[in-house]
Amino acid sequence: MTTAMTPYLQFGGVAREAMEFYHSVFGGELSVMTYQEGMNDGNPATADLIMHSSLYLERGLHLMAADTPPEMNVTGNGTIAISGDGAGEAEEINTLRGWWDKLSTNARVDIPLEKAPWGDYFGQLTDRFGVTWMFDIGEAQMP
Rank of each mutant, 00 (worst) to 15 (best):
A66D: 08
G42Y: 12
M72C: 14
A90C: 03
T95V: 00
D85Q: 07
I80F: 06
I82L: 06
G42N: 13
I50F: 14
L49D: 11
D85V: 05
T95W: 02
A81G: 01
M51R: 12
G42Q: 13
D85R: 06
D67I: 09
R97E: 02
L63E: 05
A65E: 11
A47V: 11
A87F: 04
E91I: 08
R97L: 06
M72V: 12
N73S: 08
T79N: 07
L63A: 07
A66V: 10
E89R: 09
G76N: 03
G86M: 04
N73T: 07
G98D: 00
W100H: 01
N73A: 10
I50K: 14
L96D: 01
G98R: 00
P44S: 14
G60L: 11
N77V: 06
M72K: 14
K102H: 02
S53H: 12
S53Y: 15
D101Q: 04
W100T: 00
S83A: 07
A65Q: 09
P70M: 11
E92H: 07
N94S: 02
L103P: 05
I80G: 02
D48Y: 00
D85N: 08
G60M: 11
W99G: 02
E58W: 08
G98E: 00
W99F: 02
G86D: 02
L57R: 07
N94F: 06
